[in-house]
Amino acid sequence: MGIAVQSLSKSFGGHQVLRDISFSISKGETTVLLGSSGAGKSTLLRMLNLLESPDQGSLHIADMAFSFPQKKSPSSNASTKACQLRRKVGMVFQQYHLWPHMTVLENLMEAPVQQGMSKAEARDKAMGLLERMGLPDKVNAWPSSLSGGQQQRVAIARALMLSPEVLLFDEPTAALDPAITNQVVEIINELQASGITMVVVTHEVDFARKIASRVVYLENGEIVEQGTAERFTAPQTGAFKRYLQH
């Protein structure tokens, strides 16, 4: 089982951002979340690792179950559970958010070492991942000395350090030169081949087509259309059809 979301809703101060969202994704699939600006894509993605907490609904992800509103049981318990979830569900932010005062290697080692991995093991794993991301010579570089695309690959490697079952991407190509987009496509396809379940928010239909095995299309906080990647060629709703034609 990958991810199952039932009737999730979320409001920010009276403004309903997500309405009755339900979908399920099986293990190993790459799902693209599409929709125009303000549709609620980022908010939905952030809910999948509880950076936002839903008002209502339930969430099954990486063999853990959450239902909302959470019962007022000992709150530390809820946050420990959220912490466990986040170790299995990684996130790559649009702005990467690397820690600028740490080298690339330190960025990668921070979380696993805090969570009990030995330094030697973390270092080996980091080296392996940097190799895989094509950045073996950047081990000791400062993040500020890297290009946008390199920073993003470091951010992906940092998320992979915890061997997540699910990886979430918010607009992985938005801050990049179009020429680098293909690199991102390659990395995502490689990760998919290794069996990681991914959810990718994007604006770019071309990019979406290249990586998606499933698509979810949002408009004003509601799912308008969802299905397999075939929906790109055969959309079922007028709204999604229009969106694809822009």
């Binding site: 690792n49 950076l51 912490c83 986040r86 990684g90 958010h97 690397l98 921070e110």
Partner: peptide, 27 residues
């Protein structure tokens, strides 16, 4: 210190306490 710095730590399951001393305070 940008909010995203804390968020990146939280998203990796790093505890608030650890995040404060290792990520926020040095910056």
């Amino acid at each position: 210190v940008p909010k995203g710095q804390t968020e990146a730590a939280v998203a990796l399951g790093i505890s608030r306490f650890h995040c404060f001393f290792r990520i926020i305070l040095p910056q």
